[in-house]
Design a protein around this nucleic acid. Structure first.
Length: 203
DNA sequence: AACAGCCACAACCGCCTTAGT
DNA sequence: GACTAAGGCGGTTGTGGCTGT
C-alpha cells in the first residue's frame, strides 16, 4: 500500500519501506524457517532485505505467520471482539490472543473501520441526548474501575465487581487456544450476557 | 468515461517495557 | 543499579480499490 521508498538511516544504509513484494516475503519466510522468529534485527540482516527488524517482525506476525486467518470475520468473532473490547478496551494484543488466527493489527483495523461506527451509532440510539457517549457515566463499578485503571481493575477483579468473579490467572492466560473455534463459551463465563449491541444477533 | 469521496487495510511511527550487559 | 538495544504495543497514516455522481 505504502509507496516503495528508501530511507537513509544514520549508518548510511538504505532501508526499504512500503509494501512488501512476494520475493521479500519469500526471503523473510526462508530466513525465519532457518533462524526462528526471534532476533529480528539479525533476521533483517541475514535475509538480505533492506528492512528494519521491526518491519520484518510486523510482516511475519501480521501476514506470513502460519495459521493466520484472513478476512471474513464471523459474527461469533465480531461479537467476541465487541465483548472483549468492552472489557479490556484497546488492548488489541490481548483481544487477538483470544481469537485464534487473528492478529492484533487485523482486529484493530476491523474495529476502527466497522465496529467503532456500529458501537457509536448504537450508543447514539440509546442516548440521543448525550453528546459524548464515550464519556458518559460508566454503568457499574467495574466499568468505572476499568476506565480509571484497567490493569488494576483486572488484577482486582474479584473485589471490584462482586457480580463477576473468576480465576484471574485463567482469564489472563492468553496463550492460543486449541480446538474448534466455535467453542467460544469461555467468554460467557467471564462476561455478562447483557445488552451489548449485536449480542442478540442483530448484526 | 472521468472524477470525487469513501473505505479497508498494510505498514510505519513513537512510546513503553523487557532483557542483556 | 545504570545503561543500551531489542521487542511489543497502540495509534496513525497513506494508498489502492470501490462506489456513487
Amino acid at each position: 500500500m505504502a509507496p516503495q521508498s528508501q530511507t537513509e538511516s544514520p549508518t548510511r544504509k538504505f532501508i526499504n519501506r512500503g509494501a512488501w513484494t512476494p520475493e521479500e516475503d519469500r526471503k523473510l519466510a526462508q530466513c525465519i524457517e532457518v533462524h526462528g522468529a526471534k532476533r529480528w534485527k539479525s533476521i533483517a540482516i541475514k535475509s538480505g532485505l533492506n528492512r528494519c527488524g521491526k518491519s520484518c517482525r510486523l510482516r511475519w506476525l501480521n501476514y506470513l505467520r502460519p495459521n493466520i486467518k484472513r478476512g471474513n470475520i464471523s459474527l461469533e468473532e465480531e461479537d467476541l471482539i465487541l465483548r472483549l473490547h468492552k472489557l479490556l478496551g484497546n488492548r488489541w494484543s490481548l483481544i487477538a490472543g483470544r481469537l485464534p488466527g487473528r492478529t492484533d493489527n487485523e482486529i484493530k483495523n476491523y474495529w476502527n473501520s466497522h465496529l467503532c461506527k456500529k458501537v457509536n451509532s448504537e450508543e447514539k440510539k440509546k442516548k440521543p441526548n448525550t453528546s459524548t457517549p464515550q464519556e458518559s457515566t460508566p454503568r457499574n463499578t467495574w466499568d468505572s474501575a476499568l476506565a480509571e485503571n484497567p490493569e488494576e481493575a483486572i488484577n482486582g477483579i474479584g473485589t471490584v465487581n462482586s457480580e463477576v468473579s473468576f480465576d484471574v490467572n485463567e482469564f489472563l492466560d492468553f496463550s492460543p487456544k486449541e480446538g474448534p473455534f466455535h467453542e467460544l463459551d469461555w467468554v460467557n463465563k467471564y462476561l455478562e450476557l447483557d445488552e451489548l449491541p449485536g449480542s442478540s444477533g442483530e448484526f
